[in-house]
Design a protein around this nucleic acid. Structure first.
Length: 424
RNA sequence: GGAAGGGUGGGUGAGCGGCUGAAACCAACGGUUUGCUAAACCGUCAAGUCUUGUAAAGAGGCUUCGAGAGUUCGAAUCUCUCCCCUUCCGCCA
């Protein structure tokens, strides 16, 4: 969530940022209005409470002296009623303003390229080159079926469409990939964790996934819990309601989890095989850091993720998302896309974002900052997250990239210690 | 799932209607002492929010003792509901 004080003090600035995202800026006017009413009520309410506290103390003294305080007590009954009235009104306004804030996105950083759609995203870097195959390339479904390593029909039978099923060397390759990624991140000082994949609604709210994206989540109604769409959710919540020590920052976590997404409304769009699934595997990176370092940390995380692909020798590119394509919570975001030879297009395999203090404000995740005066004051940390990486799209690119003319897959060098075979 | 006990500041933990935003201890930070370290001693040490306001600052009010509702002039303290934790029993990987 954004800081209400920022909106109060710079409404036009926020409106500009909203327009850059292509969003309606009327929400700011509404928030501004509610906030104004809210503060008027607070003023009245608090001055009455001050009176109540004062007179209550007086009554205490009078009672101690065995004096009669009936008159004051009668008077305070009226004050009590009025306070209750104002409290109720205030609560309504609080709910209203929070309801608006929950749908207000983070501000794009000033240097984020301005644009409307993904067509306006900026290609930052292309790594490697496209291979020249002198035979007809097979897509990942054909390869998976031929080699009996992927079977979407079984997944459909067990659960439904979009639930992949890995088999034999396919399962081993997947496991190798995940282990290889985790081991690499650990070397880069990420702390590995295995978090719950079902979380409560507070965790979802802190991660700013609900209410905005509630429709895309698997929800267990009976317990009001959610299957995570990304490990970012549990990881971000590790330090909820904490004030961290400044010397502990940055704190970096990595985790492998299954991820679950309903992908509501996207049927018919890239539904083939692994291109869009309801359950997939991902190694996620989350970084808690001081605000002044967050954009440097973003670049580091980008490198950490890219390194994985380079060691795997996968042709990839980095794009920077434009203001119109930027995610709800992000102030700046890079996507890493891998090349699919069968689809003849780039596939998103990772998204690395600086969410600044957007989640930390909602989850009260702070650190003790030392001011110039030497005093300390809690300040919201910046939180970054990135996939490092999701295997679903990566496996598409990997299988296609490493296929041989006779329909086999050469295991990439760095994975062979994990797979114990070099050909599928 | 059944039974009992409990949720207080960074931690341990007292308080059980007004003198408690909260004792005491520990940790942390600053200082004195010291050749250095340690020890000892002194001091500081919750967050949020509103108003006012400064070059930085500051001043004042309000709120917060798991969450919510209630009783009361006044609630950490009494009542109700919910959530969570611990222990024991049952079931089970």
């Amino acid at each position: 969530m954004l800081d209400i004080k920022l909106i109060r003090g710079n409404p036009d600035y926020i409106r500009e940022k909203l327009k850059l995202r292509g969003e309606d800026d009327k929400i700011i006017l509404r928030i501004f209005d509610i906030d104004k009413r809210r503060r008027e009520i607070i003023k009245k309410d608090e001055s009455l409470k001050e009176l109540r506290n004062k007179v209550s103390d007086e009554i205490a003294v009078m009672k101690k002296n065995k004096e009669n305080a009936d008159e004051k007590i009668t008077e305070m009954r009226k004050v009590h009623a009025k306070i209750k009235e104002l409290d109720d009104e205030l609560r309504k306004l609080d709910v209203m303003i929070d309801g608006e804030l929950k749908f207000l996105p983070n501000n794009p950083k000033d240097d984020v390229p301005v644009g409307k759609t993904e067509d306006d995203n900026v290609e930052v870097k292309v790594w490697g080159e496209k291979k020249n195959f002198d035979f007809k390339v097979l897509d990942h479904l054909e390869l998976g079926k031929k080699l009996d390593i992927l079977d979407f029909d079984i997944g459909t039978k067990i659960t439904g469409s979009g639930f992949p099923f890995y088999k034999g060397k396919g399962a081993i390759l997947e496991r190798a990939l995940l282990n290889y990624m985790l081991d690499t991140h650990i070397k880069n000082k990420y702390i590995e964790v295995i978090p719950p994949v079902i979380v409560n609604s507070i965790s979802m709210e802190t991660a700013e996934k609900i209410p905005k994206f509630a429709d895309d989540m698997y929800h267990i109604e009976r317990d009001d819990m959610y299957a995570i769409p990304t490990a970012e959710v549990p990881l971000v919540n590790i330090h909820r309601d904490e004030i961290l020590k400044p010397e502990s920052l940055p704190i970096k976590y990595c985790a492998f989890t299954n991820c679950f997404r309903r992908e509501a409304g996207s049927y018919g769009k890239e539904t083939k095989g692994f291109l869009r699934v309801h359950q997939f595997n991902k190694v996620e990176l989350v970084n808690f850091c001081k605000p002044e370092n967050s954009y440097d940390e973003l670049e580091r995380m980008l490198i950490d993720a890219c390194n994985i692909l380079e060691k795997l020798n996968i042709h990839y590119r980095i794009i920077e998302l434009c203001t119109g394509d930027l995610g709800f919570s992000a102030s700046k975001c890079y996507d890493i896309e891998v090349w699919s030879y069968a689809e003849k297009k780039w596939l998103e395999a990772s998204s690395i974002s600086n969410f600044t203090d957007f989640q930390s404000r909602r989850g009260k995740i702070r650190y003790k900052k030392t001011l110039e005066s030497g005093k300390t004051k809690p300040e919201f940390v910046h939180i970054l997250n990135g996939s490092g990486l999701a295997t679903s799209r990566l496996i598409v690119s990997l299988l296609e990239t490493y296929q041989t003319e006779d329909g086999h897959i050469v295991v990439p060098e760095v994975l062979r210690d994990y797979t114990n075979f070099d050909l599928i």
